[in-house]
Design a protein around this nucleic acid. Structure first.
Lengths: 213, 213
DNA sequence: ACGTAACCTTACTCGCAAGTAAGTAGCCGT
DNA sequence: ACGGCTACTTACTTGCGAGTAAGGTTACGT
């Protein structure tokens, strides 16, 4: 039922089709269990074409990571422009993040569940994107603290940024498994939990462990 | 330099050695890239013994998940006994969790990075343990809210519990990659961020998205 | 029209790792 | 002191999937 017979397409188009297929198959079966034959078949092409255009399985996987990671980072970044308060920046970024994942489920799964567990070269690639996000969040928190003349330790800010990004990822992953969930609502709930906590921290309040039972 | 020549051990002992080796190898190479030969070799035994005792590769992997998951859940649960306030329960649980991961790095990696990405049967097994944790955290949050005569929606509590567990996992994963990090300190920082936020929420305060730029 | 280059295929090779057949050797009860 | 069971081994078979060789076909410039 696809309109045209779609024969003999230019390279750039085929490459995207292959990447689409590869992302889908990698997401479904995982890196190792995914077969080049299936990827080729799902792209509507024969296997040697994949090798001709995107190279070996490793290179293909790396290309998937590059593309999806790029898309994700761009989607988040383009929502954070101009003059915005700290909480609005966090809100817009988080919102863009969760919305993107809801729309690109397979890409998220490849990045989050596959790439991180397939050894150094791949894990590192996604880790570096992730580090940029954590870094950005840390800068945001640090800046907000400084504006309130509070001087938290580096470790505090780093750990909170890590936890915050992790919380976002957990919600993203949950959304990936619940297609009918509302990304906006999830983002709002996390903001509610986190920003109030952070705001309270900025007043100098602290939670301290109970004195041992 | 191991003391005895260690030949002809009873089954129960060998099984544990095999599981130890399997967890290490699965953590290092991932499920598919791990070879039964390497697992056998690292357990100091020949391959057919592994098949005789623990079955096929799938069954072996499932056994690893079962054991590690059991250990983790037990470690957390045994710290939460008797009468404790909500925040102390959360604190003790989180502390036990991060401390456990710091001591059982490989097990954590198998559960968190491998099992979740190797298809339905495995992912489901770890998902169910995880669901129990989220459920427990949700009950804790819900109870604390009720004590303050606040009646949050089910969705709010569920999302926050998910985010909170996710934040804990992110810290755990970070700790797994930084062996010299301090689990206690990480736990305290997360409590600081979260419990203050939650406490503020319980006063009826709310963060609302800015009115659009 | 027709050469040539880009697009695309069928049909292989070949290595690696899962799983097994068949048999050996130490231990323990009687 | 020996039968028999459990622990253990070497040495295979087998299938699957990554990667490729060799060639066919369509478009497009001139």
């Amino acid at each position: 039922m696809t309109s045209t017979k779609s024969r003999r397409l230019p390279r750039a188009v085929r490459e995207q089709q292959m990447l689409d297929a590869a992302v889908a198959v990698f997401a479904e079966h995982g890196y190792h269990a995914a077969s080049m034959d299936e990827i080729a078949e799902r792209a509507g092409i024969s296997k040697p074409m994949v090798y001709a255009y995107l190279g070996t399985k490793e290179e293909l996987f790396a290309a998937c990571i590059r593309r999806e990671s790029e898309l994700l980072m761009t989607a988040v970044a383009e929502r954070i422009v101009g003059e915005m308060s700290a909480d609005e920046r966090l809100w817009q970024g988080l919102r863009a993040f969760l919305t993107f994942v809801a729309k690109h489920r397979d890409g998220w799964i490849v990045l989050y569940r596959q790439a991180r567990s397939q050894g150094i070269p791949f894990a590192e690639q996604v880790a570096s994107s992730r580090a940029r996000m954590v870094q950005a969040v840390a800068a945001l928190l640090g800046g907000a603290a400084q504006a309130e003349r509070i001087e938290p330790s580096r470790g505090d800010v780093a750990a909170m940024a890590t936890a915050l990004v992790g919380a976002g990822e957990a919600l993203a992953d949950w959304i990936a498994d619940h297609p009918d969930a509302d990304p906006e609502a999830a983002a709002a709930r996390l903001m509610n939990l986190v920003w109030l906590g952070f705001g309270t921290l900025l007043t100098g309040a602290q939670w301290t462990p109970p004195p041992h039972a």
